[in-house]
C-alpha cells in the first residue's frame, strides 16, 4: 500500500479519496489495507441519513443542507446512492444534478454510488465509504439512500440521525401506519409542503407517532415542513438534526449506536473474508458443482455445509 495515499486522504485530498472510494466500491483487496490505516482517524463526523420515496425531493434537500452547512463553514461529505439495473448491471447516477452548484467548493465532497445488487437502500460499500470521508475531515456526512419503499431501512444502522422524507399525495392514510420505513425516522420531513394535502400528512404522522407511543419516549421525532426547491424549512431541519445529535450524545445512545456499528462492521468483514476464501477455492469447480445440484446428486444445503466444513478444517491445520 502506497502510504502517501493515506496521507493524502487524511489531508483532505479529493483525488486520493476518490481513488480509495473506488477501491472500496470495487472490493479490491487494497481497500481493506486503506481502511485499517485510516480507522484511527474516524469517528468524528456526524452521519446523517436521508431516505424516502423516489421523487420525494431527497437530493434537493441534501443540496440545501450542504448550502447551509457551508455557510457555517462546516466541511461536508455526501454519499448518494442510486439503484443498479438488475438486468444489465448498469446504473444512471443522477443525484448530483441537484448538487452540482457545490462541485467547485473544495470543502464539499460528493460521491454517487450504485447499489450493485445490495438491498436495504444503500450500497454495500456505503459503510466503508463513510469512514473515508470521515477520515478526510468531513464534519457532516450526508448519506442519501435510493428512493425507498417501505422496507429499506439499513440506513438506521449507518446514520446517527435518520431523516425520512415524505410528500403529500403519495397514498391514503393506511400507508402511514405500515411498519418499516416510518418507524426508523428520528426526524420526519414533509417536503413539497406547499401542496394542499401537506397539513393532513403532518397530522397523520403525528397521530401515528402518538399511537405508537413514540411520543412518550425521550426523543420525539419532530415533523418538519419544507419546500426544498425554495429553501424553506431547511434551517429548522438543520436545527432538528443538531438537536438529535446532542440528544444521542447526552443520553448515551450514541455509544450504543457505535457499538452496534462495530458489531456490524466486524460481522461484515468476517462474512466477506470467509466468502472470498471459499469462492477462491471452489471457483474452478463451480460449474461442476452446480451441475451436481442440477442433476439431483446433492442439494445446495448439504453441499454448502460440506464445503464450509472442509475449509474450516483446513484452516485449523
Amino acid at each position: 500500500m502506497d502510504s502517501s495515499l493515506i496521507e493524502k486522504i487524511l489531508s483532505g485530498d479529493d483525488v486520493a479519496t476518490a481513488r480509495a472510494l473506488r477501491m472500496i466500491d470495487d472490493e479490491l483487496p487494497e481497500a481493506r489495507e486503506i481502511l485499517k490505516k485510516i480507522y484511527p482517524y474516524t469517528g468524528k463526523a456526524h452521519i446523517i441519513g436521508i431516505t424516502g420515496a423516489p421523487g420525494a425531493g431527497k437530493s434537493t434537500l441534501v443540496s440545501k443542507l450542504i448550502e447551509l452547512y457551508r455557510k457555517k463553514s462546516l466541511k461536508v461529505g455526501v454519499i448518494a446512492v442510486d439503484p443498479t439495473s438488475p438486468f444489465t448491471g448498469g446504473a444512471i447516477l443522477g443525484d448530483r444534478i441537484r448538487m452540482q452548484s457545490h462541485s467547485t467548493d473544495p470543502e464539499v465532497f460528493i460521491r454517487s454510488v450504485a447499489t450493485r445488487g445490495h438491498l436495504g437502500g444503500l450500497s454495500k460499500s456505503a459503510w466503508e465509504m463513510v469512514k473515508v470521508l470521515d477520515a478526510m475531515g468531513k464534519e457532516k456526512i450526508i448519506v442519501e439512500t435510493v428512493g425507498v419503499g417501505q422496507d429499506e431501512v439499513e440506513i438506521i444502522g449507518l446514520a446517527h440521525t435518520s431523516v425520512v422524507v415524505l410528500v403529500p399525495g403519495l397514498g391514503d392514510d393506511i400507508q402511514a401506519i405500515k411498519a418499516g420505513i416510518l418507524e426508523i425516522a428520528d426526524i420526519f420531513v414533509v417536503n413539497k409542503a406547499d401542496r394542499p394535502e401537506a397539513n393532513r400528512l403532518v397530522k397523520e404522522i403525528e397521530f401515528m407517532l402518538e399511537m405508537a407511543g413514540i411520543k412518550d419516549k425521550e426523543w420525539q421525532p419532530p415533523v418538519i415542513k419544507t419546500i426544498a426547491t425554495k429553501g424553506e424549512g431547511i434551517e429548522e431541519l438543520a436545527v432538528a438534526i443538531d438537536n438529535h445529535f446532542e440528544y444521542l450524545k447526552k443520553s448515551g445512545k450514541l455509544k450504543e449506536k457505535i457499538r452496534m456499528q462495530l458489531e456490524k462492521e466486524f460481522e461484515n468483514t468476517i462474512t466477506s473474508l470467509i466468502k472470498e476464501k471459499i469462492y477462491r477455492k471452489i471457483q474452478e469447480k463451480m460449474e461442476s458443482l452446480i451441475s451436481k445440484m442440477e442433476n439431483g446428486e446433492v442439494d445446495p444445503i448439504t453441499l454448502g455445509e460440506k464445503i464450509t466444513r472442509e475449509l474450516l478444517k483446513e484452516e485449523e491445520k
Binding site: S85, T88, I92, Q100, S112
Partner: peptide, 18 residues
C-alpha cells in the same frame, strides 16, 4: 446504462470546472 456502465449524469449548463 443498458450496456452495463455506471453513468454519472450531472445535468445542464455545467462549467468546465464543475
Amino acid at each position: 446504462k443498458e450496456a452495463g456502465f455506471e453513468v454519472i449524469y450531472t445535468g445542464l449548463h455545467q462549467t468546465p470546472e464543475q
